[in-house]
Design a protein around this nucleic acid. Structure first.
Lengths: 152, 152
DNA sequence: AAAAATTGAATTGTACACAATTTAATTTTG
DNA sequence: CAAAATTAAATTGTGTACAATTCAATTTTT
C-alpha cells in the first residue's frame, strides 16, 4: 500500500519534449557535413537564409525572425563578419541599430547552398506533403507556446 | 535572362529544420520556470528522467539513451553531483565505467517533478492523441536520420 | 529643453553540444 | 603473456543559447 506505481508521465519515451529535442539535434547533425564545406555552422546557416531572403536587416530584426537574442547573435555575426560573409554597420538614422548586410562573398554562397534542402529532404525520407504537415504542426506548437508565455 | 528567381527551397519558413529548431527551443523555454524551483536545467531534467526510470546507469548508457556524449554529460553530471542529486563511482567490475546513482535527495525530487508533464501538456494545447502522433512522427524522423547517417 | 524612461547592442557569466584528443583500463592478438 | 587494439571517461576547444547587466542613443515626460 506504500508502493506507488512509477508515474508513466515521467517516462522519457513518453515525452514530446525529448522527441523534439532529439529530432532537432539529429537534423542539425545531418546539416553538419553539408555546411562544413561552406564554412558555416547550422545557426549561421539560418542567419544566411534570412539574409539571402532579405538583405540589410538589423540585429533586432534578425533576432525576431530567428527567435534569438543579441547575446547569441552578436558573437555569431562577428564570426560571419570575420569569415567575410557579412558586414556590420551602425545605422545612420539610429546609431543604436546595427545593419547586417551580405558581402559579395556572402551573396555568392547562396548558390553553393541551393542544393542543401533537397539533399536533406532525401535523407529524411519524407514526402513533400509529410514534410509540410509536420512543419506546420511544429509552427503551430511554437506559436501556441509563445502565446501561452505572454500570458504571464 | 540572367536573373534567376529566388530559390523557394531556401526560404526560412519553408524549412522543416527551422520549425524543429524553433519548436525545440520554445518547449525548453516552457520548462524553464517549472524546473527553476527544482534547481534543474532542461538537459539535467532529462538525465533525471532516465535515472528515475532506471537507477545506476553508466555515463555511456545515459549517453545512449539521450544521444549525448561524455563531453556533454561529464560536466553536467558533475553539476548534478555538486547539487547532491547523484553520485559518481567507478565500477568495480570495470574501472573505465562510471556508475551514476541517485542520492536520496535525487530520488525524492521525482515527487516534485511529477506534475510537470501535465502542466506542459496544458500549455501546448494538444490533445493526448495529437501529442502522441507528433511525438511518434518525430521519433520516426530521428530514427530515419540515424539510419541514413550510419550509411556513410 | 532637461530628466526620466525606453530601446538596441554588446558584454558577462553559466550551461550545454559536439568534434577531437588524451588517459587509463580492459580485450584481443600474435 | 606481452604488444596492439579497443573501450569509457575526461579533457580541450569552439560555438551556440540565454539570463542579466551595461552602455549609448533615442523618446517620452514633466
Amino acid at each position: 500500500m506504500n508502493r506507488k506505481p512509477s508515474p508513466d508521465h515521467l517516462l522519457l519515451d513518453q515525452q514530446l519534449c525529448f522527441a523534439l529535442y532529439a529530432a532537432s539535434r539529429s537534423v542539425t547533425g545531418l546539416y553538419r557535413p553539408l555546411l562544413d564545406p561552406l564554412g558555416l555552422t547550422y545557426p549561421q546557416y539560418l542567419v544566411m537564409l534570412v539574409l539571402w531572403e532579405q538583405d540589410g536587416l538589423t540585429v533586432r530584426e534578425l533576432g525576431q525572425r530567428l527567435q534569438l537574442d543579441s547575446g547569441t547573435l552578436t558573437p555569431l555575426l562577428k564570426r560571419l563578419e570575420a569569415a567575410g560573409l557579412v558586414s556590420r554597420q551602425r545605422r545612420k538614422e539610429d546609431e543604436r541599430e546595427v545593419d547586417i548586410r551580405l558581402t559579395d562573398t556572402g551573396l555568392a554562397l547562396r548558390d553553393q547552398a541551393s542544393g542543401i534542402p533537397e539533399c536533406l529532404a532525401q535523407c529524411m525520407q519524407l514526402s513533400l506533403d509529410q514534410m509540410q504537415t509536420l512543419r506546420d504542426e511544429l509552427k503551430r506548437l511554437t506559436r501556441q507556446i509563445q502565446l501561452s508565455q505572454r500570458e504571464d
